[in-house]
């Protein structure tokens, strides 16, 4: 107890020995603070500044006020890209939350295949995005790829997958889900393992079925985990662009896979419109900040902690 008191007593901490308060903490914080300011906050502020300029990285930027934002709001490409991104983010997140949780239940069940299942679910996470793209390009080849061969065996018509506007986004969603679901599943597994066993046992003793235990106890107690998964998944999907780059859809066909991250990349590095790309980035940042705020507000009201 005495040891615990010593470590929890602020007076005994070495900060106090440096005079206490911010001045005392500063020497400890400074290295991290310098790195944060240089590599996180300064670029953020720089992006904000550039979003009000005509920066193209070739000439000194000139101030254009809100022109980039006006252009953004009037741009058909931007609005289309926003719709594509929202669809992509919501679909992938819903799949990752729903099926990630389901997979965690399966991974927790003590069976002969437990290790195999855990490995199989997590393996795509460690596969490089380039490899994943190549695998799926082969799988989704509309001209006799394995997926279409499977469909035809079942008597179904072949699909265009990545080559048709009506199926391209769904195909990318499927690939992103396959590539990413391992992480939420593992987070959910950790959440499941943290649930006190006595609660579950008590419910079973009271005659609750497996479904009732899951619905009334496990899933509500997983609410904090769900909030983490939701947040990580939404942020990750809204920022996605690498998959589009390596799948070589170039945002198409007909803009159907033009995710906002890719749209920003194109404007910045292919179209020489860094100022406009910065305005798009600021918009994306504000959008994610708003989503995070809504999530945290919801979690304050709805999330049940132990």
């Amino acid at each position: 107890m005495a040891v615990a008191r010593r470590f929890t007593n602020p007076r005994s901490l070495s900060i106090q020995r440096f005079g206490g308060g911010l001045g005392g903490a500063l020497p400890y914080l400074l290295p991290a603070l310098v790195i944060f300011v240089l590599f996180s906050y300064y670029p953020l502020l720089r992006v904000l500044y550039l979003s009000f300029t005509d920066a193209d990285l070739l000439r000194p930027p000139q101030w254009v006020g809100l022109e980039n934002y006006r252009k953004m709001l009037l741009s058909r490409e931007f609005l289309g890209s926003l719709g594509v991104t929202a669809t992509f983010a919501l679909a992938v997140t819903a799949l990752e939350v729903g099926l990630g949780m389901a997979l965690a239940f399966l991974m927790q069940a003590k069976t002969r295949f437990q290790s195999l299942l855990r490995g199989a679910v997590f393996a795509p996470v460690v596969v490089s995005t380039v490899s994943a793209a190549l695998i799926w390009q082969y799988m989704m080849n509309p001209n006799g790829g394995p997926l279409n061969a499977g469909l035809q065996t079942l008597g179904l018509p072949p699909l265009g997958w990545l080559t048709r506007p009506e199926t391209a986004l769904a195909s990318v969603i499927l690939i992103a889900f396959w590539k990413g679901v391992g992480l939420p599943a593992v987070i959910y597994l950790a959440g499941l393992q943290a649930i006190p066993k006595e609660l579950l046992e008590a419910a079973r003793v009271d005659g609750a079925t497996t479904w009732q235990v899951a619905r009334r106890i496990t899933i509500p107690l997983l609410a904090p985990t769900t909030m983490v998964v939701l947040f990580l998944s939404l942020v990750g999907t809204f920022q996605s662009y690498g998959l589009i780059l390596v799948l070589r859809t170039d945002g198409g066909p007909v803009g159907s896979t033009n995710l906002l991250g890719y749209h920003i990349y194109q404007n910045a590095f292919q179209y020489f419109q860094m100022g406009y790309a910065c305005a798009l980035s600021v918009f994306l940042f504000l959008l994610l900040a708003a989503l995070a705020w809504i999530q945290f507000r919801l979690s304050e009201r709805r999330v049940h902690y132990q």
Partner: peptide
């Protein structure tokens, strides 16, 4: 057909 990423293999 419209050329796509699989065209060369096809």
């Amino acid at each position: 057909v419209v050329e796509n990423a699989n065209t060369t293999q096809d």
